[in-house]
């Protein structure tokens, strides 16, 4: 039986419970650091991760391999749920904006994969986001990992809204080009 990502999702869509564990094992270690980086609290991150994978099980039927990779499918979901959590915490009045830079800089340390994999991962990290000009990297990080909207970013950086939009567009274009080059 195939254990390729799209096949696992297709089997989940057919109600095959045996496909869920391998799906989780493959994609949870990918989604967890992203969620943790956004929500910053391990307990919250674990909650969000559980929510994301439960929804993935229920929504497996809606996945269309023609329209994207399993990675993008699960990570878009994970990112969006994590941001929902951060925004609801912010709405409850906790000051989440101040330690944001720290959050953006933080990388989860626990439960790492082995050292060799880690080293190769580090090399790959340097190839995408870090290659962006600082101004573009900053706005993408504030939005994607920090959950700030364009208006909030403009306020925070004291830049015109149009500048923020343009930086996001240029930064994202570069990231897309970086992928095409692979």
């Amino acid at each position: 039986m195939s254990t390729a990502g799209p096949d696992l999702i297709r089997r989940m869509a057919q109600g095959d419970r045996a496909a869920f564990a391998p799906f989780y094992d493959r994609y949870a270690p990918l989604a967890f650091p992203l969620v943790l980086r956004i929500v910053r609290d391990r307990t919250d991150a674990a909650d969000v991760l559980q929510e994301v994978f439960w929804e993935a099980w229920q929504a497996a039927g809606a996945y269309d391999p023609q329209r994207g990779t399993p990675e993008a499918w699960i990570l878009t979901r994970a990112r969006s749920r994590a941001i929902d959590r951060v925004r609801s915490i912010r709405r409850r009045g906790a000051t989440f904006v101040a330690p944001l830079d720290e959050a953006i800089a933080a990388t989860p340390d626990e439960g790492r994969a082995d050292a060799a994999e880690q080293a190769s991962d580090r090399r790959r990290v340097a190839s995408a986001l870090d290659r962006l000009p600082d101004a573009q990297r900053e706005v993408i990080e504030l939005a994607y990992f920090g959950g700030l909207t364009q208006t909030e970013i403009a306020d925070r950086l004291k830049q015109p809204l149009g500048t923020v939009k343009t930086r996001i567009r240029l930064g994202l274009e570069r990231l897309r080009e970086a992928i095409r080059e692979r």
Binding site: A28, P29, L30, A31, F32, P33, L34, L36, R42, A45, A46, L49, G68, T69, E71, A72, L75, T76, R79, T107, P108, E110, G111, R112, A113, E117, Q118, D121, R122, R124, V125, S127, A128, L129, Y144, L172, L175, R176, A178, I179
Partner: peptide, 18 residues
């Protein structure tokens, strides 16, 4: 764009969840 952004996470170190 979703693929490009997902790639950012794919390129980062994995972390085993609890």
């Amino acid at each position: 764009a979703d693929e490009a952004l997902a790639r950012l996470a794919v390129d980062r170190p994995r972390a085993i969840p609890p």
